[in-house]
Design a protein around this nucleic acid. Structure first.
Lengths: 168, 168
DNA sequence: CTTGGAATGTCAACAAAGCTGACGTATTGT
DNA sequence: ACAATACGTCAGCTTTGTTGACATTCCAAG
């Protein structure tokens, strides 16, 4: 294949061979399964799916966020989000309040019950992430984050950076 | 394993705070979108989805693999895989041949056309991965892989390791 | 004050891709 | 001969995404 990189560059660019890249791709695929496995189990019990998790996560993260803002973070259509949001509101996990400054907007908050589910979900997900971090060590974790950030779309990275700044 | 975590707990465990873990979780979520974005565009043009991509990828990776083996790698039901496989066979991208040793088994191969699509998809995905790797550097890449591997389920990791060995 | 555009919500229809359960067929191993 | 295995398929259901059309509410500009 395109394995034949220049001799003198041999060692230093070995991490860019097609083979290395393919391993990275497969690692990403398999790891994502683990990443979602634990929350998925909790959600299935309650009759929810990943879409509910994502909504809950980002509402928790940015309390009072508007529907439009959530839309652009999640990258789905309003119809798709609305279906999920409606069940969460009906079930009393999310509260939607009309905006004061702009009454067209709805501001979203988690109720006590919603916050409880958020905690259960993120505890489960963090536990696995913590175990992985601990096993790999701080240097690996820094690299992990670097590569992930470099893999994002431009627009997505802006969302990511914006969230990052909130508690820094 | 014996990574020096004990000594000075102050700085060295900062990467395990809930805040750091949350950032890792969000990085994983946002990065996965980028990870699938390029292949998704190609697939959409051809009327396929991610499920087709996964099948094509692993058939390419393990030519002659059986349906059952593919099933356990992908972690889906045979009905779900069958639907995807059927369209790929009908469209002439995948070939299914009766086993010689065990005639109950079907061995799966990519046709020339299937291999062409595989190349287009993995080129697109590798390009982004390569850019991310290049931007982050070899040390970061090693860490990236370490964390991802530690994040996998036991069973999943076995699949991953098995694939890894094939070309090492 | 009226009107255009923005933000939101809702209805309908549809597709991809997962799931369960049941059943049939060919083949293999005991 | 019989049970188990590998595969395919039919039917039906769920989640989560998509378009398109249309109503409502509100802000702001003309």
């Amino acid at each position: 294949m395109a394995e034949g990189l220049q001799p003198q560059l041999g060692q230093s660019l070995l991490f860019l061979t097609d083979e290395q890249l393919r391993k990275g791709i497969e690692a990403m695929f398999f790891a994502y399964r683990g990443f979602t496995a634990d929350p998925d189990r909790i959600l299935a019990q309650k009759g929810y799916g990943r879409a509910h998790h994502r909504a809950i996560h980002f509402i928790h993260r940015s309390p009072g966020t508007t529907v439009n803002n959530l839309l652009s973070i999640l990258g789905v259509t309003k119809q798709s989000l609305n279906r999920v949001l409606r069940t969460l509101i009906e079930d009393g996990l999310v509260e939607s309040t009309v905006g004061t400054r702009d009454k067209r907007e709805r501001h979203l908050h988690l109720t006590e019950e919603g916050a409880a589910l958020e905690r259960a979900l993120s505890d489960a997900q963090r536990d696995r992430m913590r175990a992985a971090y601990r096993a790999a060590g701080p240097v690996a974790v820094a690299g992990f984050r670097q590569v992930l950030e470099a893999m994002m779309d431009e627009e997505t990275r802006h969302h990511y950076e914006a969230m990052k700044d909130k508690t820094e």
